[in-house]
């Protein structure tokens, strides 16, 4: 189904936005001599390791020519069409702005794709046995559809609504038009029979936030850019030194990748 524009869109996606990364890199500073506490910490992080790790993810800074290809950025579940809707929608929910990157740059749509491919997409650890009844709102989701199916239906409905209202695919709408479509889902102005439009919007919203801020190991929060927005330091072993201090402490974030030795 991919047409030329879609292929171009996907290709664009593979080009990292160097200027944005450079703009964002190391706006904070590392805390010198942060004590690594406890047994686990000392086992896992040798001192020389942590020095190089401070640049983890910011490889452009050191050796742009050798930037690793991110093999994680491919699709496990979405079709290309679905992916492009998702990418455009999440970027409207969490847009790039003066504060820093938006959902697209952070890889949120890849995050959602990967999540749907696994247990979460299949409601693997949730009670999905019948009988199914329509319950009170206080009783929560009572449908028989799994998240994958809900996304398949929801994204198609977004496309249908866009085509009907603006005679264009969702990804080709102006940002304002995309917002109109999202708003129509959020408020249940779109009437759907199989799924709840507002329920679907809530799910997209929730997974956008997850993709922006979960550890980068899941494919989102690219370059820890989500964490840097909030000055969240990620996976630090100890805050004993700063817990009582009045001054706000900006640190270079650290991801879980540093908890494994990488040769």
């Amino acid at each position: 189904m991919a047409n030329e524009t879609e292929e171009q869109d996907l290709k664009d996606h593979r080009e990292p936005d160097h200027s944005r990364r450079n703009f964002l890199k190391n706006s904070g500073y590392a805390v010198g001599g942060l004590i690594v506490g406890g047994v686990v910490g000392s086992l896992l992080r040798s001192p020389n390791k942590s020095t190089t790790n401070n640049n983890n993810g910011n490889t452009t800074e050191k050796a742009p020519a050798n930037e690793a290809v991110n093999f994680n950025q491919a699709l496990m579940h979405f079709t290309q069409e679905q992916f492009l809707i998702m990418e455009a929608a999440t970027e409207r929910i969490f847009p790039a702005d003066d504060n820093g990157p938006g959902a697209k740059e952070l890889g949120v749509a890849y995050f959602i794709d990967h999540q749907l491919a696994g247990e979460w997409g299949l409601n693997g650890r949730e009670y999905m046995q019948g009988p199914f009844f329509k319950g009170e709102t206080t009783q929560g989701y009572q449908g028989r559809l799994k998240r994958r199916e809900i996304f398949d239906i929801g994204l198609q409905e977004m496309q249908n609504y866009s085509n009907k209202k603006f005679q264009k695919k969702f990804k080709d709408l102006t940002p304002e038009q995309q917002d109109t479509v999202l708003k129509a889902f959020e408020t249940d102005e779109v009437k759907l029979t199989t799924i709840s439009a507002s329920g679907f919007f809530k799910t997209i919203f929730g997974s956008t936030m997850e993709g922006a801020y979960a550890d980068p190991l899941y494919g989102g929060n690219g370059n820890m850019g989500g964490w840097k927005l909030k000055n969240f330091p990620g996976n630090q072993m100890s805050y004993t030194k700063i817990i009582e201090q009045d001054k706000f402490e900006k640190m270079q974030p650290v991801s879980l990748r540093e908890h494994l030795p990488h040769s």
Binding site: N123, G124, R125, E126, Y127, M128, Q129, F133, G135, E136, T138, Q139, G140, Y141, Q142
Partner: peptide, 20 residues
């Protein structure tokens, strides 16, 4: 998926499973 609870606000309504 193996075991959950069911819930209702009062005895007049049907209790339904806490699915997630």
């Amino acid at each position: 998926s193996r075991e959950t609870i069911t819930f209702r606000g009062n005895e007049k309504i049907k209790a339904l499973p806490m699915r997630s």
